[in-house]
Design a protein around this nucleic acid. Structure first.
Lengths: 203, 203
DNA sequence: GTCTATACTCTGATAGAC
DNA sequence: GTCTATCAGAGTATAGAC
């Protein structure tokens, strides 16, 4: 009973305050956003905000924790659609990019506001982020296990370069552009998997 | 005579104030850095700083302009070492990453502090950044011109994904690690060029 | 749980002596 | 060109009424 409630609570996360904070942190950055702005956007005054979140940083931490949870859930549910390890990597890439690009701001904040976390909060987030990285490493390990990957490649570097490329999309993507998130993700996956040289291909 | 002086001035850029600002902006971000800190690190007081840079933002702009100039120069001089278009891409990648990772903070600030630029300054930087992008597009276009690239690939997306992966290295690289910047750049280039699948390769 | 009111600190920037 | 001194405003956070 209590367990069920916990799961339910952690799932919805429809706090308008967090939502407003996420939007503002993404637009202007954590340091340039004031608690007055957040409170205002959430429909209240600074004094009320501090009743629920003691400090500005606790707001950031809550946002980031929500972000990493959503990322893990999104990837897990996306990869369930296929049993082919290579295809699962592609699906995971799509899920990650979709979350970063779409309305949800938590992933963006998670990725780009690490500097604003101090000490303790940062350690908490590092542990959570490690889990997400482990999820990816598992996916890549499975892919390598098929024997279809070049044996000399460094899986950790593959993860870092691939997620790096995808995370950077947030810097240049504009919703009005001619490329849909899934197209971008697939192109990235394609270039990564097959390379861009023609001469290396079998035909 | 005056021309020579201009070139000389634009080349050295050893302003200790800019250097201090770059270091601090990288560590804590533009918004979280105070002019008092910058002045202090540069060996003066806030009043003196404002004599040379009217506003905090003008400091950021100067830093970014210096950054993009250094990036263009570094890539240009690096690619001069080879005539092979594919090899030139690899060399450019090395140069870019080396600059981002090494002591120089201007590139990092250039990449990660766009949000802090307002209006006019941002437009200036967009124009300069476009030149750098054009340099890369030229390199990739030459590479495609050899006929050695897959014909259906999107060169712009190749640039965005590759530079994205490299720019993201600043987020996880630690100098004490077991990977040298050039190794990382070469691995990224290798995976991009040849892909990570074994089955697509000729042998 | 939200409001009002405010404490206290720090911010970027300026004026004028040296 | 750097200093001292300071302004005016904005920052987070708190206390207590409702």
């Amino acid at each position: 009973m209590t367990k069920l409630k916990l799961i339910k609570d952690s799932k919805q996360d429809e706090d308008p305050l967090l939502k407003a904070a996420g939007k503002l942190f993404r637009q202007k950055g954590f340091a340039s956003t004031t608690v007055r702005e957040i409170a205002g956007a959430g429909g209240m005054l600074p004094g009320s905000l501090h009743y629920r979140y003691a400090t500005k940083e606790s707001l950031l931490l809550a946002l980031m924790e929500q972000g990493i949870t959503q990322a893990i859930n999104a990837v897990r549910s996306a990869i369930a659609a296929s049993r082919d390890p290579i295809e699962r990597v592609r699906l995971a890439l799509r899920a990650h990019l979709r979350l970063l690009i779409h309305e949800d701001d938590t992933i963006y904040v998670l990725l780009y506001e690490w500097r604003a976390l101090s000490g303790e909060a940062r350690e908490t987030m590092v542990r959570l982020r490690d889990r997400y990285d482990a999820l990816w490493d598992g996916l890549l390990y499975e892919a390598a296990g098929t024997g279809r990957l070049r044996t000399e490649i460094d899986l950790k570097l593959v993860r870092l370069s691939t997620l790096g490329a995808v995370n950077w999309v947030a810097q240049w993507y504009s919703p009005g552009g001619d490329l849909a998130p899934d197209e971008i993700a697939d192109t990235f996956a394609n270039n990564l998997l097959h390379g861009i040289l023609a001469e290396d291909r079998k035909e």
